[in-house]
Every structure is written in structure tokens, then in C-alpha cells.
């Protein structure tokens, strides 16, 4: 069992299986109305309520990714143990840095799938909403610029009121959210007619930081590997990921 789990043949089989499931999902997703709420719901919450006929491939992906994570860790340990006395330590460690990045990205998706939320709300100028943490957010002002019938710029000023009565003002615009207690406030749309108002998104994603760490590790590892491989004329030795 251990030798199967650590094998690169298993890696290839699992990657192919994952690709098969994702091809099915990519085709099925636009065809089924069940998936419309998926981007606004944490994955595991969505999977609990979605019909199995629509979500089965996602259960498959979770299972394959779990096996792939185990395979990645075992493959890395095996490779480091086998080559620890070799001289080309950068060539040995860079794939393991890539694997570590991949594992961080998987952990990120796991955290996002469990605990993320994304809720839209319409805030009217002069009025506000209460966040789950007890902080109140109040829309102070909205501004937008229209050119040739297209909205080319917009921003909103909001005031946060904390439970202890203290306040903080923030300006949000597209690509420039404001954060309180890890929850981001994103400006999606503004209108001034009939009354000034903003469509905002409250979003919390616990997987964002691990995903960033994973991305940085992945890029660091592969950049090192590319530099080494571009100088190298040999094929990689068999079965040594």
C-alpha cells in the first residue's frame, strides 16, 4: 500500500482522474441551475444541500485531492531521503518546495470550503448594516464617473462603528476593499438614481493567506527548477519526482 501511495505512477493516475472529473464538472456546471449559488456559498455548505446528481464529481475531486496530497507528501519524503547525500541539493529541494506550495494551496481550498462567506447587500446613503461581528457599517457617500455611457470609476465612503462606540472611516472602490476583523467590504456597483446607494459584498475567506503562501512557495520552487533545467541537457532520471 505504501509503495503504491508514494509512486509517481499513482500521481499520474490521480492527476488523470482529477482531470476527468473536472472536464465533467466544467461541462455540467453551466447546464445545471444548482451551481448558481456555488460562488456565493462555502463549498462544503453547498455540497450538503445540492442534489448528489449535480455534486457527485465534487465529492470525487475532494477524494482524489486527498489521495494526491498524501501521495505528494510521501513522494517528497521518499525523494529527499533517497537523494539527501547528493550534491545537487537545489535540484532535490526545488520540487519539494513546489510540492509544499501545492499542499498549502490545498489547505487554503479546504479552509475556504469550510468557513468562507460572501454576502451581497444594498446600502443606501445615510443608512447602514450590521456585520456578524457586531460592527455597524454606514454608507456616508457614493461617487461615480460615467464616460460614453459606461461607468469608468466609482467609490464609496463608509463609516464603521465598533461595539465600544469608536468609529473608523474608509473609502472603497473596485479592487480596493476595506477590511474589519478579516471581513472585506467590496464595492460592486453604485447608483445615484433614484437615491444614492451602493451594492456591496461582505466577504470572508480564511483560505486567502495560505493560498498566497502556497503560491509564493510554488513559484519559488518552479523558478529554481526552470533555471536549473534550462542549463541541463539531460532527461530527468526515471521515477524521481
Amino acid at each position: 500500500m505504501y509503495s503504491i501511495l508514494k509512486s509517481i505512477r499513482t500521481t499520474n493516475f490521480l492527476l488523470a482522474a482529477l482531470m476527468g472529473l473536472l472536464v465533467y464538472g466544467a461541462v455540467a456546471m453551466p447546464l445545471s441551475p444548482s451551481f448558481r449559488s456555488l460562488s456565493s456559498t462555502a463549498l462544503f455548505d453547498w455540497m450538503k444541500t445540492a442534489p448528489l446528481t449535480a455534486s457527485w464529481w465534487l465529492y470525487g475531486c475532494v477524494a482524489v485531492l486527498f489521495l494526491l496530497a498524501v501521495n505528494t507528501v510521501l513522494c517528497s519524503i521518499e525523494s529527499v531521503l533517497r537523494k539527501r547525500k547528493g550534491r545537487q541539493w537545489l535540484l532535490t529541494t526545488s520540487p519539494q518546495v513546489i510540492h509544499a506550495g501545492f499542499c498549502f494551496i490545498l489547505v487554503a481550498h479546504l479552509l475556504s470550503s469550510y468557513g468562507s462567506f460572501h454576502k451581497h447587500a444594498v446600502l443606501y446613503e445615510g443608512y447602514g448594516a450590521r456585520m456578524e461581528s457586531g460592527v455597524r457599517v454606514h454608507l456616508k457617500e457614493v461617487k461615480s464617473r460615467v464616460e460614453s455611457g459606461h461607468v469608468t470609476d466609482m467609490k464609496a465612503t463608509v463609516v464603521y462603528t465598533y461595539p465600544d462606540g469608536s468609529t473608523k472611516e474608509a473609502t472603497v472602490s473596485p479592487n480596493n476593499p476595506a477590511f474589519v476583523d478579516g471581513t472585506g467590504l467590496y464595492l460592486k456597483r453604485v447608483t445615484t438614481d433614484p437615491v444614492p446607494a451602493a451594492l456591496v459584498l461582505f466577504s470572508y475567506d480564511p483560505g486567502a493567506l495560505p493560498a498566497l503562501i502556497g503560491g509564493v512557495l510554488f513559484i519559488t520552487g518552479i523558478l529554481t527548477l526552470v533555471v536549473l533545467k534550462l542549463q541541463d541537457k539531460d532527461r530527468p532520471p526515471a521515477d524521481t519526482a
Partner: peptide, 24 residues
Amino acid sequence: FSLSMVFGGIWAFLAWGTYWLWTP
């Protein structure tokens, strides 16, 4: 391509509140 995906993830987080969107 991996670098592009990382930058895309950062942009998506800043624009849509998540680094991953469930779209085709």
C-alpha cells in the same frame, strides 16, 4: 502560467473577495 494564476488569484481576492471563483 503558474505566475499568472497567482497574480489572477490576488486580483480576484481584491476584486471579488475570493481567490477562486466557480466558473467554467
